[in-house]
């Protein structure tokens, strides 16, 4: 009895119906925070004494990097739940999380490179954090490629969940070793790791952006999960009714 909610949570149909109520809140709050954070960070936060205006890229770079890493753990945890409790919904969330995480990793890599040009004079340095981010990007691509290679969805789910878990075990080791590698090769002229304290007037917009990114992530993850659910439950009665309804609503049939 106590487990009933758990099983209900595992039902894609239940999730699809419940989540439609969350969507406007998540999306609205996320977009408002992002908008406020962007305007604040771009226009109202003071200019950095050392880096000038280029530091404003931080307001998207840092949150994207946060979520790129958090997204991998979310993906792996969902995969683990799916493998252990054979929960269908959990696999769907995992599959939805992979492209989102890859996109966020791409954003953080791209913005980092663009930020690097005016700050260090070069787009790309093999700095520890950038390199780790690149490897994280490859891990995401690997999970996506593996899940796309199977013709049966169930095999794809389980295989990519396992790969995500293996990746999770490896991420700390990869980070540590890349860090060590970088200290070994660090050129004396480049000092990229600054542990400087950040002024509140610059910090509040950053917090706003981070919160906005988290909400946006939750919103987009829900959206992707919902559309994957529809794709998978294609043959079930409730999806047929739902699609039938919406196709009538858009007026494309009859």
């Amino acid at each position: 009895m106590a487990w009933q909610w758990f099983h209900r949570l595992g039902s894609p149909r239940w999730f699809y119906q419940k989540s439609s109520a969350w969507l406007p809140w998540l999306g609205g709050a996320g977009l408002i925070l992002l908008l406020v954070g962007c305007v604040w960070g771009l226009g109202f936060a003071p200019e950095d004494a050392k880096q000038g205006n280029s530091y404003r890229i931080m307001y998207i770079h840092v949150p994207a990097a946060f979520l790129a890493l958090a997204g991998y753990y979310i993906m792996a945890i969902c995969g683990a739940i799916g493998l252990i409790w054979k929960m269908k919904l959990s696999f769907v969330v995992m599959r939805a999380a992979a492209p989102i995480g890859a996109a966020l990793t791409f954003i953080s890599l791209f913005t980092g490179a663009v930020w690097g040009k005016p700050t260090w004079g070069t787009y790309w340095v093999w700095d520890a954090r950038i390199t780790s981010m690149l490897i994280l990007f490859f891990l995401y691509l690997g999970v996506m490629a593996l899940s796309g290679a199977f013709s049966r969805e169930q095999s794809a789910d389980k295989a990519s969940a396992l790969l995500a878990l293996v990746g999770t075990v490896n991420i700390p080791i990869i980070y540590k070793s890349v860090d060590w590698w970088f200290t070994l090769h660090q050129p004396a002229t480049l000092k990229l790791t600054e542990a400087s304290t950040i002024d509140p007037s610059m910090f509040y917009p950053l917090i706003t952006m981070i919160a906005g990114f988290y909400l946006f992530y939750a919103w987009v993850l829900t959206l992707h999960t919902r559309s994957l659910i529809l794709q998978r439950e294609w043959r079930t009665q409730w999806v047929r009714e739902l699609l039938g309804q919406s196709s009538v609503a858009t007026g494309s049939t009859r």
Binding site: I135, F138, L139, L141, G142, V143, A145, L146, A149, L163, V166, G167, N170, I173, I174, K176, S177, V178, W180, W181, L184
Partner: peptide
């Protein structure tokens, strides 16, 4: 190629400490 794509990132620590 898929095998290379999914395994290569996991090889990173070994490569780093091997050459190190």
């Amino acid at each position: 190629l898929l095998l290379a794509l999914i395994i290569m990132p996991l090889y990173v620590p070994v490569l780093i400490f091997g050459t190190g």
